[in-house]
Design a binder for these strands. Structure first.
Length: 549
RNA sequence: UGGGCUAUGGCCAAGCGGUUAAGGCACCGGACUUUGACUCCGGGAUCGAUGGUUCAAUUCCAUCUAGCCCAGCCA
């Protein structure tokens, strides 16, 4: 898919004007949670710009706050990005640069552009002012450079406790941009760091660390989301005053929000802890691991992201748009197989009892490379319960009913004659007769069937578990509904279905179930029972008409 | 009169002074079909509002309105 958005244009111009020879980008996650579909925009945008403009792409963990981070997330983030196919050229950690960052901070101190403040958290907040009122200078703002040097060294050497002192940039307490009101750039935290262990007692703040990380790595274009727009002046200030050779340019784009999906860490954790989902990789979640388990192809995610462009406006994209790309991709690549989600027995009364014949079925209508297979057919077959109604409901009904004839795809025409019901009046068997003249491929043109339905042979089949998913949140709910009330209790429906006997797929294999939808083999599958997840249903114009009537 | 950003059909989104205002999703018709799938045809907006500049504005200017972000020793 062709990429053409405002950032691409900026980069092209920078290359044309010889400002840069290439685009060097990065994705800088903090290892404190799982990646979700929204992050895919940032990952793919940064990655694709480097790829398109001949540079390279770094994965850099922004691990500057040890008390919030965990190496467990490092692994899941790496796995997800790798799965997306956004291979990084370098793997870095912000913590790799702690020494240099400290030195650059000291440089600021020596230039009189940073000072150590003894104020408490609360005092700093008070003096910072409000959105409408300017802040006031800290009483420690004008300490001598010598004193600041000593104090900052002492902070580093553990002379003070957490919170006792901070290092602040000396900028402008009256700025209308809150970020410029002498931001704290180092704080004391006696915490174990997953990477540097106990080496550091002081840690740099994002606003100071991030521009340095970018500059150190020679990032040319630092692409991030809109909420950092206000930070750009500070970003530039840091790069400018720390004598960094490379001067990266931060460019912001709008975040990708998906309508009616759960992305908040707090909510996901709640769902996980209350066992309302199977884990962080539940197929109903739009975490990247959830999408992967759901069987969403990474290609569909890339196409989805690119098709949305890169706007600066914020809106909520409907998940259907992703599904469309999923169908588009799977429709071309996934082999088609017969499977019955809700089996109903069909007995062909005039078919010989012990005979089994094999019919040839292509694995894909257009893609001949996927080959074909021989499928058994006998007196007893399963059809989809929804493909039979005793009485034809309307003229549009193109399935089986009593007195109606349909084609069992790739086999014969069958005409339904009677039904057998259980004590509750539920149909458990349909009896029919077939017409040997109508064998598929025979060229029979005598009459037209009332539709085509598929089947799985009733003597050669495998029982499987099929999981159907709906959105985790209800489609509609009261405006002030609590999260609990929004959760859709029917988001998971488990069916006992049957598939062709010869199928022996592996976890992650994707198929189209004929006339039904796309499915993937779930990791919960065992040697005894395969478990299929419905990725997305096939579109159906029938349902729409039905709803109308 | 704190600062920054955004505003095009139900949803997303092109367009950057002269276009019949792209395209996708969704929706509604119809054709085709041994997947009611795929594919193919057809259907809808005057561009947040109001004023201005101009021969000409969705595109420039002004004002207004609405929404989002910013007062972590989070990122």
């Amino acid at each position: 898919m062709e990429i053409n958005h405002f950032i691409d244009t900026i980069i092209e111009n920078d290359i044309k004007s010889k400002k840069h020879k290439e685009a060097i980008t990065r994705f800088p996650p903090e290892p404190n949670g799982f990646l979700h579909l929204g992050h895919a925009r940032a990952i793919i945008t940064n990655w694709s710009m480097a790829k398109k403009h001949g540079g390279h792409f770094n994965l850099r963990f922004d691990d500057t706050n040890p008390i919030k981070e965990d190496s467990m997330f490092v692994d899941s983030i790496k796995r997800d990005i790798e799965w997306l196919g956004c291979h990084w050229d370098n793997l870095f950690y912000a913590s790799d640069y702690f020494e240099e960052m400290y030195n650059r901070a000291m440089l600021l101190v020596e230039k009189g552009l940073a000072y150590v403040d003894d104020l408490s958290n609360e005092e700093i907040r008070t003096l910072r002012g409000t959105l409408k009122e300017p802040g006031k200078n800290s009483p420690h703002r004008d300490r001598s450079i010598e004193e600041n040097v000593k104090l900052f060294q002492a902070m580093k050497n553990g002379k003070y406790d957490d919170g006792e002192k901070v290092l602040r940039a000396k900028i402008d307490m009256s700025s209308s941009n809150m970020n410029m009101r002498d931001p704290v750039i180092y704080r004391i935290q006696r915490a174990y760091h997953h990477n540097t262990k106990d080496k550091w007692l002081i840690y740099p703040m994002y606003d100071f660390a991030h521009p340095l990380e970018d500059a150190i790595e020679g990032i040319t274009h630092s692409l991030c989301s809109l909420e950092f727009e206000d930070h750009r002046p500070l970003y530039d200030w840091v790069v400018e005053h720390t004598k960094m050779k490379n001067k990266p340019r931060q460019i912001e784009f709008g975040r990708l929000l998906i309508a009616n999906q759960v992305t908040g860490k707090r909510y996901i954790r709640e769902l996980v802890e209350e066992n309302k989902v199977m884990g962080w990789d539940d197929p109903r979640l739009i975490t990247l691991s959830g999408l992967r388990r759901r069987g969403i192809p990474k290609k569909a995610i890339h196409n989805f992201i690119h098709s949305l462009g890169l706007p600066k406006s914020e809106g909520e994209t409907e998940i259907e748009m992703l599904y469309q790309h999923v169908r588009e991709h799977l429709n071309e690549t996934a082999p088609v197989t017969n499977a019955i989600v809700e089996p109903l027995k069909l007995v062909i009364d005039n078919y010989p009892e012990d005979e089994v014949e094999y019919v040839k079925i292509p694995n894909h209508r257009r893609n001949k490379e996927l080959g074909s297979r021989m499928v058994p057919f006998s007196k007893h077959v399963f059809i989809e319960r929804s493909d039979f109604l005793e009485e034809k409901p309307n003229r549009k009904w193109r399935r089986l009913s009593l007195g109606e004839e349909v084609r069992l795809m790739h086999a014969y025409f069958v005409k339904a004659n009677s039904v057998v019901k259980d004590d509750n009046g539920r149909i458990i068997e349909v009896h029919c007769t077939y017409d040997p003249e109508t064998k598929s491929g025979s060229g029979f043109k005598g009459r037209k069937p009332n539709g085509n339905i598929h089947f799985v042979d009733g003597t050669h089949y495998k029982k499987v578990e099929i999981r159907l998913f709906e959105d985790l949140l209800k489609e509609e709910y009261e405006k002030d509904a609590s999260f609990e009330e929004k959760v859709n209790p029917n988001s998971l429906v488990i069916k006992k279905g049957v598939i062709e006997e010869k199928m022996s797929p592996e976890i992650g294999d994707k198929f189209q179930f004929m006339r039904n939808g796309f499915y993937v083999v779930d990791k919960d599958s065992t040697d005894k029972t395969l478990v299929f997840n419905r990725i997305v249903p096939l579109r159906s114009s029938y349902k729409r008409k039905k709803r109308k009537n």
